[in-house]
Design a protein around this nucleic acid. Structure first.
Lengths: 153, 153
DNA sequence: TATTGTTATACTCTATAACTATA
DNA sequence: TATAGTTATAGAGTATAACAATA
């Protein structure tokens, strides 16, 4: 009598390894930015505003693939920390213009440096070829699955 | 005249791409297992119990790198769904023996099939070489950063 | 009526710390 | 006193849906 068919193992899945590495990388980064009193989600908003200038919650939500409600709360927190400003647009008062404050603008390069540091910590031991391969493969998946609104590279 | 030195871009970081892909993969998987009324964290517990047999919350916490409090709540939910059982160990009544119930045991292969499906969806379009490279690089990082207690491969 | 945004509600995930039971 | 586990509390992240303001 044959044994019951084997089911696939947790570790057989690339998704498993990807999640493990990604969770560690993100967790380490969140520890680093916590020292600047921001969260990872807040960092992404700040970085988006830095790149795009004044924008609206809807556009941020689209770019970050989050709901408007979620962005609303994030922006509330960033307002409380005086890192962004928010006010009604003159053209259409349904819109809110969200922008970095001077202290928000000053903070972004510091956070970017932490991101550099974090990347070096996790990927620095890879060879140039390995890093290039990883980047290429990840971007290929992003492209095929139409994941991003962003990729400006 | 060269322009002012740029700060690193969000998209310059491998961590950024890794997180983007991983989030999408995990999100898609969570949608799939939600159809079986379980979450991803619950799935990992079930899969661990399937592999190791009866164990204790502490050991699960160690393997999953979570706190005992978090595991306690997860096990509560799994108990409520009749997917695991929990009772004091006879040897040392501080310990709790946690094990799959028959319905928990029956569910694991169905969830494993969903994991297979999800992996195929995201990584199926890669070449064999690309998949192998991705796996090798991720495991190298896991090894170097001492991420896992698990890797039985 | 359609759109932008906020608020209310809820649930998962996770941590820390206080607490209980057992040894 | 030390260990296993639970519970209380809290906060991030996220979603859905109800709502308000504006067009």
């Amino acid at each position: 009598m044959p044994r019951a068919p084997q089911i696939s193992l947790l570790e057989d899945h690339l998704g498993y390894w990807l999640r493990m590495v990604s969770n560690h990388v993100s967790h380490a980064f969140s520890q680093k930015v916590a020292g600047q009193d921001v969260t990872v989600a807040e960092w992404v908003v700040l970085r988006t505003l830095f790149a795009t200038g004044t924008t609206t919650p809807s556009r941020v939500a689209d770019e970050m693939k989050m709901t408007r409600g979620a962005i609303s709360k994030l922006v509330d927190r960033l307002l409380a920390k005086d890192l962004v400003s928010r006010r009604s647009s003159k053209e259409d008062r349904r819109w809110q213009d969200v922008a970095l404050t001077p202290s928000g603008r000053a903070l972004v390069p510091r956070l970017a440096a932490l991101a550099d540091e974090n990347d070096a910590e996790f990927f620095g031991a890879l060879s140039d070829d390995e890093r290039a391969a990883l980047e290429r493969i990840l971007k290929k998946i992003v492209r095929q699955r139409h994941m991003a609104a962003v990729p400006v590279d």
